[in-house]
Amino acid sequence: MSDFMSKINPFYKFVFIIVFSTVITFIHSLWLNIWVFGGAMLLILTGVKYTQYMRVVKFMLPVAFMSFSLFVMGLFFGEGGGGMFGTVTTQSTQTGITMATRFLSFAGIGLVFALTTNPYDLVKSLRKDAKLPRKFAYGMLCAINLLPHIKTEYQNAMMAFRVRGVRVGPLSLKPLFSMLVNAFRWSEMLSLAMISKGFYED
């Protein structure tokens, strides 16, 4: 086992998956879908360290789930299908299978990328090879690294409102609003901190 996929230049990998997925957007073939998905799985299983297999499973579960629901959708509402619990024909079955595998092929390509690329290498390579301006590169990394902080603050905001006697559900706008206020303050603080470390771009 090796992790050769992780060693490919992330930007080229990035461009490749976008071009490749755009091309297959316009080709409708069941076999192509199966080949692409099979190839992606092969790359994943041989291309990532076996210690990452649990991650692969974690990523695959929702993908498999969505793919199955696409199949059922095609089965009922595809050409020749008879609507909800209607007559299922060979044609609509085929539509269902095509849709499900098509989704799998897109997800497979994405998975190869997600599992073998770390954000730091990608940003580094986006800067070097794609001439992405530094402020975009570091600005985005900055926000991603804030993710754990954002999570805790979001939970805190939810609780803070409940303690004050305000009802908040998962769909309430109040905690979201607090987080947006935070976002403005955080972006200001973080940018000052970066500039004070010599970050400069005209």
Binding site: L141, C142, W186, M189, A193, S196, K197, G198
Partner: peptide, 19 residues
């Protein structure tokens, strides 16, 4: 400028951009 002055901020959570 950073050769002359640099700052350390109050909130330790909001002063790094990397991991």
């Amino acid at each position: 400028r950073v050769a002359y002055v640099a700052m350390m901020f109050q909130n330790p959570d909001l002063q790094f951009c990397m991991n």
